[in-house]
Design a protein around this nucleic acid. Structure first.
Lengths: 257, 257
DNA sequence: CCTCGCCGCGTACGCCGTACGCAATGCGGG
DNA sequence: CCCGCATTGCGTACGGCGTACGCGGCGAGG
């Protein structure tokens, strides 16, 4: 509880008082710089270090203690810059979103523009796989995400979508990309990093699946698996995810002419 | 590495030895029942209690301690039934998947069958919102999920998709539904449960967004927001998610004739 | 009947996010 | 100019998490 009675025991009735700022979005609380000793870091440098850490060691490496170690400070010092870990995650996401290469203006062909954005988005998620779990909740709109959204809305201007549908399109496209990459990464964990236990787990899954298929129930599954094996694409082989993505995203773009 | 040299130092060339069962999928390790006192619970009853808990108190309530309290046992007793929390999550998911009402056989119209499945899937995720974060990783295929997958593959038999494309379709459809419901739930948190701090957070977001729009940058965002407000659908109002879902899912089903 | 395997579970370890308070620091007002 | 105090860095601590380990007791197989 933050709005309980103990806070701001007496408010000025007219004053433009900053009140107590009970709950503010990270983007509008200032980067202070006031009386005391000069801060050793900035939000940006901390977020940058956190992104580096997550890129190298994965989503689960994003902990306040490890980030603090990465920037070379005490754990609790981070809270001088960021009110909570969730806010730091917002900063990380927004920082990474800056990697989008947005044209000055839409080309006039919404389909082409959105397709380009989708490809960039997929590439971005590949560069920063931790983004997939990090985006699980709808992210708060930092400056870069706002720029991105604004650009997409500009692209959609050449469309006959109603306003609500435009927001909807933005969200669902991004969700679709995330969903696809999530699927893609899950398929790829076979030879990918995180090595030991993941490989074992996958192997156990494969063995179990084979056993179940051989068992006789699930005839359709058995049949399709057999066809698949006969077709030469054994389940361990790398599928053509690029082509898959193209088909998937083109289908999803049934919204623009 | 799982295939490293230290495992199974000497295998019998012919023996059907159970080896050491280094890592097994939960579905194939037996529900023992051996020498000692009769177990007080079963995997099913535990998973059932966990589902009840998650339905009532949300995803974050799924902890071994709380589940143990729910079934009325010590925390560590759960590990007599389930090797890890992840496996318990698999059991929970598979149990909930049993709620699908699958017809005896496909109707012959793949589009209609898939549409029905999608609607059921959305309803199921609404009944069990914790499933959205729980499905973040591709779930291990328990019996019910296998039945479900087998049915979908049966539906897709009337299709000219290649085998790999069929598996792909299953995964992407389910991912799309999850993604949609995730978006939907995020929009709905305004008046929904989890009450105080979520509402506040949302309010802060709204205030920030208004400030940013008024600020003048992001002209397209401002324009669409204005249009949206003028159209009467204020951002706080409930959108027609049902219609949205229908459009979304029909678009996604561009794969079957 | 005895024995040994299984059950329930208390304790403990190492993580996590973060509340709180204290010493050091250096800018702004007198 | 200097002093007061806001601000910074951070050690300590709390409550919660998943789960490794080992113990006492129950009950079926020989």
């Amino acid at each position: 509880m933050s709005t309980e009675m103990i806070d701001t025991p007496a408010e000025e009735p007219d004053g433009p008082a900053p009140a107590s700022e009970p709950h503010t979005v990270i983007w509008q609380r200032p980067q202070t710089r006031g009386r005391g000793p000069r801060p050793a870091h900035t939000r940006e440098s901390i977020a940058e270090a956190a992104v580096r850490l997550a890129d190298e060691h994965g989503y689960e490496a994003i902990s306040m203690r490890r980030i603090a170690a990465e920037v070379g400070s005490g754990t609790m010092s981070l809270y001088r810059y960021v009110p909570s870990k969730d806010d730091l995650l917002d900063l990380m996401i927004d920082q990474v979103v800056a990697e989008y290469d947005l044209p000055e203006a839409p080309s006039g062909d919404p389909r082409a523009d959105l397709l380009d954005l989708a490809r960039q988005g997929r590439a971005l998620l590949h560069r920063h796989p931790w983004m997939v779990p990090a985006m699980s909740t709808v992210p708060s709109l930092g400056p870069n995400l706002l720029r991105h959204t604004d650009y997409v809305l500009g692209v959609l201007k050449a469309t006959d979508l109603r306003p609500a549908e435009k927001f909807e399109a933005v969200a669902l496209l991004s969700g679709g990309i995330r969903s696809f990459v999530e699927f893609e990464l899950a398929q790829r964990l076979q030879e990918q990093r995180s090595g030991v236990s993941a490989q074992q787990r996958n192997q156990a899954q494969m063995a179990y699946l084979a056993a179940v298929v051989a068992e006789g129930r699930y005839p359709n599954l058995a049949e399709v698996a057999a066809e698949s094996a006969a077709a030469g694409d054994d389940p361990e082989a790398a599928r053509d995810f690029d082509a898959m993505f193209e088909r998937f995203i083109v289908r999803s773009l049934g919204l623009a002419p």
